[in-house]
Amino acid sequence: MRDIAVVAFVQTHHTGEDTGLSETELLAPVITEIKQRTGITRFGFTCSGSNDYLAGAPFSFVAALDAVGAWPPISESHVEMDAAWALYEAWVKLQHGEIDTALVYGFGKASQGDWAEIATVGYDPYYLTPLGVDADSMAALQARAHLERSGAKEDDLRAVVARSRAAGRDNPFALHLPDPEDGDHTVAPLRAHDVAPVTDGAAAVVLAAGDRARELCERPAWITGIDHRAEPHLPGVRDLSRSESARLAGERAGAAGVQVAELHTRYSHEELILREALGLGEEVTVNPSGGPLSADPIMATGLIRIGEAAARIHDGTAGRALGHAASGPCLQQNLVCVLSGATNG
């Protein structure tokens, strides 16, 4: 396998409300900055992640291409998934390609719709979508299953939120949210603060191979393992209290021994489930950026986890870090990317 590293990461100052910028306008400064930072104007490959239903219209990725400067024509692809999967596609391309660099980006404006409701059309169209079951309700089923099995309490969920929001207030790019106070349940056992905030934002990452990575970055964040796994869709056929697909992906990517983990936790209880699945003990710092509970620009959120984990390698605060992304109802699909300051892990 070729040595591939995250050499640059740029994100917007995420906002909790629509500031009047289109998706393309949100993205363009991020692309401009990452080009300036790396000094690269033409990448070997470009890949993005976005979602038409989030944008409310088909082909959201076509307009976004305007921000990239795709002329002369570029080698490019797109996944209708979180941009973490776009990063995976780019990593695969770098493994066999004749190319040394790749640009990956994702963007989302959750302020335009109600994501919990939009998520309903992403479920089984025969048994789930017709029920009108929303993302928060599905997540709450999983929260209940986990609390009942593990003995964790709602106080433990609140502690996750309090820690995440405190970290988020130290992150200039995240939303700055107050300490959680007990309001009513949104969908019991989850309260409003247990759910990631509505966020608009965009992010980009540059990957580079071997010596090119060393030229571009003083301390490249080498990808020593990356893997993603799915599990069956219907909630009634799984053990919701655990995440088997996260466990598998973590095992294959080599999650053991990381110092920092950035987890795609759109709901507080997911941190408990993922810590267990990935074998992250008390000594592992989780979501020092504040995580999705402090900023959740959907379709970029997973990519930002990898970017934030890489940034801990870039700045020397961690030797090994992990970025995680999730997709589908109740953590159905999980991606784990393990990064290191050394190519041999």
């Binding site: 979602n51 038409d52 239903y53 996944v79 209708e80 998934m81 999967w85 995976y88 596609e89 939009i118 998520a119 059309v121 992403g122 479920y123 089984d124 169209p125 979508t129 893997d227 993603h228 796994r229 799915a230 599990e231 069956p232 869709h233 056929v237 088997e244 697909s245 598998l248 997709s327 589908g328 109802p329 159905q332 699909q333």
Partner: peptide, 20 residues
């Protein structure tokens, strides 16, 4: 059907596997 890889994962034998 948004992000149909979720609903189709097990229909395509992808339980425990990568699907994109």
């Amino acid at each position: 059907v948004m992000t149909p890889e979720a609903y189709l994962a097990d229909a395509l034998g992808a339980a425990g596997k990568p699907i994109m």
